[in-house]
Design a protein around this nucleic acid. Structure first.
Lengths: 247, 247
DNA sequence: CGAGCACTTGATCGCTTTCAATAGCTGTGG
DNA sequence: CCACAGCTATTGAAAGCGATCAAGTGCTCG
């Protein structure tokens, strides 16, 4: 919170999220228009990117790092409602205020577009509007999957679900497959996992210990996870063990 | 389940959802194109409109009645993930299979478009694509609000939240304001409410009784609700009591 | 009048929360 | 180098809330 966001610069050609972000379908001309209204911002782990209720002056994509969307009740209870990974889009064209807090949970780089020009560009660029619709539909699917987790799964199933989501995303980013053991680092604290799953951090800790004791996962330190058998984990999550291998 | 869907016909000009549905921004020409690929279908209360996993041959709008989107786990636990009211859109252009069961909870009339032609039309009709993006963003907001309810609210707060959502929607449909007592009929069974809120139907019943005993709501029969003080209900829901009066 | 359905209410159980203590790690300063 | 603060995480014990199991009510329809 004490340091200012830092500015840096980069090029769309060697952008790591070029083919997955909101600009994925853009051709050369469209990309040039985007370049004119774009700028990069960096945030440190823990920094708040956008405060709920604030006016939003920009929209943009996560380039690297992880951010969360959270809602807070008056008495302090909080629920995470979005987990933003590289290529995910932040902001809602056509809306004024930000409805949720956006917080960087790791060091974060964002590719930002000034909101007004972006909206105008979108109005005359079907490639962007179309891609944004696609991405919004994906987010809606993820939110609905998440609702099943929140509403109907046990604490143990919730943890297993979250681990399997992170494992699959990690596999798709690093392009390792889903056969054989999967290894990754948890990008979230126990408290953030609790906010994701509608649990307390104590319950998260207990269930992770239990999964470890039962051999469903292995832990090195607090964050480094190995999953020896992905099918086993998905059974624990209460998910179909078959199908769903394309991410 | 025993009867077939019935077909009927109507005109866009006197369509009750003309100004709110996916076609809201369409001009005369666009509307004519839509008319060519549109047809109406009726469903009886309890009928399944779309089975999860099926190919979808159409997309469309709810004209009248109420439908639900639900997910089911292998062991039978179910979670409602969408509540479809008049003007809401069903289906996802660009996707093949249906990810959720769509069930009519009341008698239902839908305005359907054949999927393939609709997708083609959408590709060259920004008005439609733009409106669909707007509606999808609204749905995403609703889903995220819902996630807070599922993850962090008590049973009593969940019931109060659902009642306040239904009350507000009813007020916006019937164009009565939110001042003074609000009166409406519950469109959901106790079981459907439980599926919506991630509770059991017994808990729903108990909490409704409790809210009634405490004078937060009045009941005539099982379904007819009067809310003497909307502010009080919103306090019970754990929501901000101020602001948020535009629906 | 009885079957079926939606709903209510009661008693008990058990999972998750709450409260509390402790461990392990990192960075700071005497 | 060690003491200590601050943070994250683990673990234990007890309490509470919602689930489960089980009757029972009231209504509609045949």
């Amino acid at each position: 919170m004490s340091t200012q966001p830092q500015l840096c610069h980069s090029n769309c050609d060697d952008c790591p999220i070029r083919h997955r972000a909101v600009c994925a379908h853009c051709d050369k001309d469209e990309l040039e228009e985007l370049e004119e209204i774009k700028y990069y911002r960096s945030f440190e782990a823990g920094q708040t990117v956008i405060w709920s209720g604030d006016q939003m002056s920009f929209v943009g994509s996560v380039v690297s790092g992880i951010a969360t969307l959270t809602q807070t009740m008056e008495d302090g209870r909080t629920q995470m409602v979005g987990l933003l990974l590289p290529s995910d889009f932040v902001g809602r064209p056509g809306r004024e205020g930000a409805p949720y807090d956006v917080v960087a949970t790791t060091d974060l780089v964002m590719c930002c577009f000034r909101k007004k020009p972006f909206e105008e560009l979108m109005a005359r660029t079907p490639h962007i509007a179309h891609r944004l619709l696609e991405m919004t539909l994906d987010e809606l699917d993820a939110a609905r999957e998440w609702m099943l987790v929140l509403g109907r799964k046990t604490a143990r199933e919730k943890i297993a679900s979250l681990l399997s989501i992170i494992a699959r995303r990690d596999a798709s980013l690093t392009k390792r497959g889903m056969s054989g053991p999967m290894v990754f680092d948890l990008p979230l604290t126990r408290e953030a996992m609790a906010d994701y799953l509608g649990l307390t951090l104590e319950t998260v800790s207990r269930q992770i210990s239990a999964l470890k004791k039962d051999g469903v996962i292995h832990l090195e330190g607090k964050r480094h996870v190995t999953i020896p058998d992905m099918g086993r984990l998905m059974e624990e999550a209460g998910d179909d063990t078959d199908g769903g291998f394309l991410v």
